[in-house]
Design a protein around this nucleic acid. Structure first.
Length: 872
RNA sequence: GGGGGCAUGGCUCAGUUGGUUAGAGCGCUCGCUUCACAUGCGAGAGGUCGAUGGUUCGAGUCCAUCUGUCCCUACCA
């Protein structure tokens, strides 16, 4: 009993069912298999707080294309799934949720908070992975990981202790970026700068000895309460005599010195800078050089602290207003200018970051960066597109130490323990209960690690490291990392130096970078703009395959793209086209045919389509190997639509009607090419290709996922026949063109006379001319002479259609003259090239040959046109 | 301040190491309810590939400068 397909493509009918089938068959699972080459991708773990957005959809589509392609090629292709605990984002959500209940972190305590966090993880951690399944992602769910699961936690502790013992992790009092809303330190990479309109307040600080004052400018007047010096450039003649003198700091009873430091730019402002070591990274450095006191004047939520006298308790911006007003009242404010400057904000919550001196843990970067730079420079790790290695080098070469401690509870707790009695610090993988020095009780560091600390280990922690697992041996280093350019710093760079440091190998060979998906107007999709498109809604309306096709098509590595519903629609239309091509086959397929095999005798058009298919196989494979996914996709798209549907299927129709062996042979070729096309398309549109595969007779291959990727077949290379058939195609096109031009109704048939040197070729094509070119019949000969006929000239033929009543000799002549001129122009251009000695001498032989062939083709055509003109 | 992307028909974009007549989708025009598909078929119009200069036998493609635009990065108070 032949299976039937619905008339229209409706992905909802089968996508979920197909995905379930794949899982039940274990198609996604990859095993260590010494017989096969491994191919590995680890997913960029989405946050447990996250929901699938277009960025995920793109990222996962690209990964799935690569992994499905390699799986079909026979690799043991592993795509490791997992999610990230996203310490700061998750903690913020839970704090927010507790706020609704009127609770704070402190109310519930660390234990209580963590149990809420784990509940959250259980509840929402599967949301995003379920959404990835809707995309068709062929992730090996048996190997799903979580950055805070036992194995990953083990890896984190291992790394921390090793780096600490090597002196590459240290604890110190430094100025760090502090988010007053999240109440934690954040790393440099987590600060986003945005330009804001502000002011320049020019202040006057009086000299203690009453001999005058200095004028300086600041964008943050409220920090003056923490000033511990004023600096000038040592070479600045204007102020040299003042260096070493003391100033009376307005609004306080403190005196601060004038120091000389080359950090000060003489050209900028007044050349005098107030120094606030506790609240500015540069000032902190100046302070270190001059042994200045560090006076922290703010609380952790950016209010003025107890050192601020009447300003105590005020928010920093409120304090700014009051301080400026008071300075003004007391005559210390000289003037105010408008000034725009870059303000650092927290990448999670957007609050203005407050530089703050505090005790934190750091990773010493310089020794780690060096090998990480080398491995990209020497090609062990390749960025695609290449230009991103510059971005990478730039960051790595200017990197500063990485602040890894966070004042958060959700995350990997720092494995450092402090003695309550002697203060001794112990860093250990195993829990420490008593001080190894004095035996007194200890307490563990309260802080957790930056989320990205565990993400940096992801390519190997997920494969079992630090255990020596077979998976790690086999699948590591991974093959390709697919991610957006926006997280090169956060993640890619850190994985590279981590992989090199701990495993001795870079964690992947290739970094395949993509851009971001913008909205239809080219704006970044964002929550605040509300312009985000929900991929799940798109899937619901058009199917996952259409979404995937849209994301993969016309998308070149590293470049942004725009979402457009129109593009999704055309993708869906393409799916429908393929669907109907399959319906056509099924309607005509003989029951005798149970698998794809070619007939013993192939016609010219069979050889043409097979040859074309063979070319596509070769080209697509090369494109995919070079990560040219968009190009590969457009090739199979063109083949399916233009070659297979528009031509080959149409050509098969008269053969079907002829019945018998003629029909059966056509069916065999149709089926053979269809199955090949489905395989080539499968990585891009897995659902529809599988659904069709299930309907076609495949000789027992029960899933296309595990079918072999087609390889170029020398036996199917029919260059001569393919070229011959192209001549037929251009003849048919020429006739259609002329008929359309002359408004000949399709119903009006006419006999077609083909003057050609290849009568045997054209002679056997009668049925095609009848079906596709409105011919009532055809006739071929070496020469014809018609007084009055529509003439079509192609490279290989001169075609006459006696449509007497429609002929207008003048028009016909005018058209031929126009064509003649065009061909003459072509001949001129080619002749010019061929008479250029430089060209003949230096161009490759095959290019010269091509030009010569072109010339003779044009000349032949010209002769035919001229002949027709004469006849008129 | 440094670095990079983009600029190709009305719109959105491809164009793989420089080599036929620069492609696609959408839109537009004309003609088609042709027995897989109107989510379709056939035909067509529309581009001096941002500007200038250079390298080359040959440039949308490589180099330089410029213009416009977007982004990344940086401690100028």
């Amino acid at each position: 009993m032949k299976k039937e397909l619905d008339k229209a493509y409706d992905p909802k009918q089968f996508e979920d069912r197909i995905y379930r089938m794949w899982r039940e068959k274990g198609c996604f699972h990859a095993e260590v298999d010494p017989q096969k080459e491994p191919y590995t991708i680890v997913i960029p773990p989405p946050n447990i707080t996250g929901q699938l957005h277009m960025g995920h959809a793109l990222d996962n589509t690209l990964q799935d294309i690569l992994i499905r392609y390699r799986r079909m090629q026979g690799y043991s292709a592993l795509w490791v799934p997992g999610v990230d605990h996203a310490s700061i984002a998750t903690e913020a959500k839970i704090v927010e949720a507790m706020k609704e209940e009127g609770l704070t972190k402190e109310d519930v305590g660390r234990e209580g908070f963590l149990s809420r966090a784990w509940e959250w993880k259980e509840k929402y951690g599967t949301r995003i992975t379920d959404q990835l399944k809707k995309m068709g992602s062929s992730l090996d769910w048996d190997r799903e990981r979580f950055t805070m699961d036992e194995g990953c936690s083990e890896a984190v502790k291992e790394v921390f202790v090793r780096l600490y013992n090597e002196g590459l992790i240290y604890r110190g009092e430094r100025i760090i970026n502090w988010c007053p809303h999240c109440k934690t330190s954040i790393s440099d990479a987590e600060v986003e700068y945005e330009e804001q309109a502000g002011h320049f307040w020019h202040l006057r600080y009086p000299l203690s000895d009453g001999s005058g004052s200095v004028e300086l400018a600041t964008t943050r007047p409220e920090t003056m309460l923490g000033d511990t010096a004023v600096a000038v450039n040592p070479d600045d003649g204007r102020y040299r005599h003042l260096v070493g003198k003391m100033l009376r700091l307005p609004l306080t009873d403190r005196e601060i010195p004038i120091v000389a430091d080359s950090y000060v730019d003489m050209e900028f402002g007044t050349g005098v800078v107030k120094i606030t070591p506790a609240h500015d990274p540069n000032d902190f450095e100046v302070g270190l050089r001059h042994h200045l006191p560090v006076i922290n004047i703010m609380t952790e939520d950016a209010h003025m602290n107890g050192l601020c006298g009447v300003y105590t308790g005020l928010d920093r911006y409120e304090a700014r207003k009051r301080i400026v007003a008071d300075l003004d009242a007391q005559g210390y404010l000289v003037r105010v200018e408008d000034h725009t400057h870059n303000v650092g904000t927290c990448y999670r919550c957007g609050s203005v970051v407050e530089p703050r001196v505090s005790k934190q843990w750091f990773v010493k970067m310089e020794p780690l960066a060096k090998p990480a730079i080398d491995c990209v420079r020497n090609g062990d790790v390749k960025f695609i597109p290449e230009r991103f290695d510059k971005v990478y080098f730039n960051w790595m070469e200017n990197i500063r130490d990485w602040c890894i401690s966070r004042q958060l509870w959700w995350g990997h707790r720092i494995p450092a323990y402090y003695c309550d009695a002697c203060g001794e610090m112990t860093v250990s993988k195993d829990a420490v209960t008593a001080c190894p020095k004095c035996g007194a009780p200890v307490h563990q560091d309260e802080d957790t690690l930056d989320t990205w600390f565990s993400s940096a280990l992801w390519p190997f922690s997920t494969l079992g490291w630090p255990e020596k697992t077979p998976e790690f041996d086999y699948f590591y280093p991974t093959s390709t990392l697919v991610t957006g350019y926006d997280i090169i710093f956060f993640w890619v760079a850190r994985m590279i130096f981590s992989g090199l440091k701990y495993t001795g190998k870079p964690p992947f060979h290739t970094v395949f970078i993509h851009g971001i998906v913008r909205d239809e107007q080219g704006r970044k999709m964002s929550k605040s703009l509300g312009n985000g498109i929900d991929p799940l809604e798109v899937i619901d309306r058009y199917g996952a395959d259409a979404l995937r096709f849209m994301l993969a098509t016309g998308n070149s590595p590293g470049n942004d793209m725009r979402y457009s519903e129109e593009k999704v629609k055309s993708s869906r239309n393409f799916a429908n086209k393929l669907w109907n091509a399959c319906r056509f086959i099924m309607m005509n397929l003989s029951d005798e045919i149970t698998e794809a095999s070619l007939p013993d005798v192939l016609t010219v058009e069979d050889k043409w389509v097979l040859s074309r298919f063979n070319d596509v196989v070769k080209e697509m494979t090369e494109n995919l190997d070079k990560f040219e996914l968009g190009i590969a996709l457009s090739k199979i798209y063109d083949f399916i639509w233009d070659v297979y549907c528009d031509w080959y299927i149409e050509l098969s129709k008269p053969r079907m009607q002829a019945g018998g062996e003629t029909a059966e042979n056509a069916q065999k070729v149709l089926l053979y090419v269809m199955q090949g096309m489905l395989k080539l398309l499968h990585p891009f549109m897995p659902f529809i290709t599988e659904e069709i595969w299930q309907v076609l007779p495949t000789g027992g291959q029960d899933t296309i996922m595990l079918a072999d990727w087609p390889v170029y077949d020398d036996g199917l290379c029919f260059a001569q026949e393919a070229a011959d058939f192209e001549k037929v195609i251009s003849a048919i096109r020429g006739i259609r063109n002329r008929r359309a031009e002359m408004n000949v109704p399709p119903s009006k048939k006419a006999k077609v006379y083909i003057e050609t040197r290849e009568p045997q070729l054209f002679g056997q094509m009668g049925a095609f001319f009848e079906r596709l070119a409105g011919a009532s019949a055809i006739e071929t000969a070496a020469s014809y002479s018609f007084e009055s006929a529509v003439t079509v000239v192609t490279d290989a033929a001169r075609i006459f259609i006696p449509l007497d009543d429609l002929i207008d000799k003048d028009k016909e002549r005018a058209r031929l003259v126009k064509e003649q001129a065009a061909v003459q122009r072509d001949i001129e251009a080619v002749s010019k090239k061929l008479s250029n000695e430089g060209f003949l001498a230096k161009a490759p032989q095959n290019v010269v040959e091509q030009e010569k062939e072109k010339l003779s083709r044009h000349q032949e055509r010209l002769a035919k046109i001229e002949e027709s003109l004469k006849a008129l």
